[in-house]
Amino acid sequence: MIRYVAMRLGIAVLQLMALAVVVFFLIRLMPADPVARLVGLNASADAYAQSERALGLDKSVGEQFIAFLGFGEGRGLLQGDLGRSWVTGEPVAAELMRSLPITVEVVSLALFVSLLIAIPVGLIGAARPNGLVDRGAFMWGLFAGAQPDYWWGLLFILIFAFTLGIAPAPLGRMDPLIIPPDPITGLVLIDSLVQGRLDIFVSALHYLALPVLTMVFTVSGAIVKMIRQNTARALNSDYVLYARACGLSERATARYALRAALTPTVTLIGIFFGILLSAAVTVERVFSLNGVGQYSVRAILDFDYPAIQGAVLAVAMVALLVYLLMDIAHAALDPRIRE
């Protein structure tokens, strides 16, 4: 097992390296002039040249690449340095440490709530096919999945924040008047609890309610469908029939079916984590959350090369880590893939 994890981590590092190389060259293929974007189109040739030198864009692409990797004089990727943002001048790593936790928090919470709803609904749907719950979930999946998430987000703001007034306005991840807790993990929900600040915790939950609802609403229809399918297959399987024929109790038979139906869910978590990460880009925009989605959009529009590279690598790292964890969990649950 340890060997397997070590091997997977090694592969993940290689994947990240390859990704870093691809991103580095791809953004330099864009027909963009980041210097002009910084100094303005009316800047003097002197100012332009000075800025170009400051950004290191006067050097050849090869030299830039060597510097990016950290083989040059300064620090680079190999030393764990993602450089400084060309727009804010701050270290990209520090900025990502602020934005990435927000996204991870929203996405994890949304996935957790989705499963909390989807597992029972899927199980009931499979146990009573064409029953009320089954048909309801089917309609909901069609209905919710047919509209883009940002549209649902806007609609929820209109209903819950402005009409009903039970949700806060979309102004970020907590009440703007609250001073955020000292970052320990960067995840506000955890940091506030660790520091005993229940008021922050409640406010953060309150503010996260609508973005999480938006994601849950759009994504859980699909999860319900998959869980329902897995469960139906298990319920109709030979081993459940045989367990019944062997006189096992209803509880024991149900446990047989559940075990087989829910094990593949682990794989679903990995897949939907990826889907939600990309959904975060628009949802964060609607709810003014400064997550990594927003950060990437800003960096791309500004031609902020170090920020783009950093954001891509950070998101990829999170996704690879989640996949690895889910693969380990799956192997622990399913002996067939433990080879």
């Binding site: 030979d238 029939l241 367990a243 006189g247 075990r259 087989a260 002996p335």
Partner: peptide, 19 residues
């Protein structure tokens, strides 16, 4: 079932729980 009358199912492999 399984006690007084027991059955050997035809598809033995799929009659065993895979996990």
């Amino acid at each position: 079932r399984g006690n007084r009358i027991a059955i050997i199912a035809q598809n033995t492999r799929s009659s065993l729980h895979p996990l």
